[in-house]
């Protein structure tokens, strides 16, 4: 199964006009070429500034008159609450949890993302399949299997990955929640009881996976160590590029 679309099959330079694609054979009964809107994904760990950036991007888009929709993990009607519950007690085995997340994702893809894109909305996704895949791979999942599971996903128009050094992430989490999150510290897979140590090493593992995925899934790494305002300006500029057709003299490197 082709999980990564052949880049020569569409014109990379023409991001504003290119039609939607699935990573693999896609979803039954859905023609991605009919989807008019744009799908913009912001990826990053907790504390990377993801939510702030999405809120700013949304304000900006709405001021310009674009209709937007926010989606994120564990927000499906179908299994969102059950998934949240299952995460509280460590009762599900890894494959089960992984497929539970995939169900949550698929429900939102089919019942929220695709209908919104069909109506020409800008869909802002607070994380997408990449976080889900990275988490599973660091837990020992077969990368080929998990990529195949998520071959139902639409290829976004842009993926912004906010890379923040693990130490800064830890500090931001301390400031915000006064403690580190169990799952974001990978406590389920580590031997050390020191949560800070676990957090740092787990975040390094996740970042390593993101770097590995970057080669396969065309996304932009944004230096998230900078100020909210600076990052926001960069994201707006990059988003603008997707929304409006551009002359063709733009360097290929700018979007690769």
């Amino acid at each position: 199964m082709t999980t990564i679309p052949d880049k020569s099959s569409y014109d990379l330079k023409d991001v504003a006009n290119r039609s939607k694609l699935f990573y693999g054979n896609g979803l039954p009964h859905i023609n991605p070429a009919l989807l008019q809107g744009k799908l913009i994904v912001v990826e990053g760990s907790d504390g990377s500034g993801r939510s702030s950036q999405i809120a700013l991007l949304r304000d900006w888009l709405e001021r310009l008159g674009y209709a937007t929709l926010n989606v994120g993990l564990k927000r499906s009607t179908l299994v969102g609450p059950e998934l949240e519950e299952a995460k509280q007690g460590n009762v599900l085995s890894p494959t089960t949890l992984s497929l539970f997340y995939a169900t949550d994702f698929a429900d939102q893809l089919e019942n929220k993302i695709i209908p919104a894109l069909r109506s020409g909305f800008i869909v802002l996704a607070d994380r997408y399949i990449y976080t889900l895949m990275a988490r599973d791979i660091v837990r020992g999942a077969d990368p080929e299997w998990i990529r195949s599971v998520y071959s139902i996903a639409l290829v976004p128009d842009a993926v912004f990955y906010l890379a923040v050094s693990p130490r800064i992430l830890a500090e931001r989490n301390f400031q915000k929640n006064a403690m580190l999150d169990y799952w974001e510290s990978g406590m389920d897979i580590q031997r050390s009881g020191d949560m800070f140590e676990c957090f740092i090493s787990y975040q390094r593992m996740i970042q390593k996976e993101f770097r590995a995925m970057q080669a396969l899934y065309d996304f932009e790494t944004i230096n998230g160590n900078r100020s909210i305002r600076t990052i926001s300006q960069e994201l707006k500029a990059k988003t603008e590029f997707i929304l409006r057709p551009q002359p063709l003299q733009i360097q290929e490197g700018a979007i690769m």
């Binding site: 979803l27 179908l78 089960t96 497929l99 995939a102 429900d107």
Partner: peptide, 14 residues
Amino acid sequence: QLLTPTTFSLIHST
């Protein structure tokens, strides 16, 4: 009746 073929399939696989 929230289920689509894909979510129907995924939930059974879960």
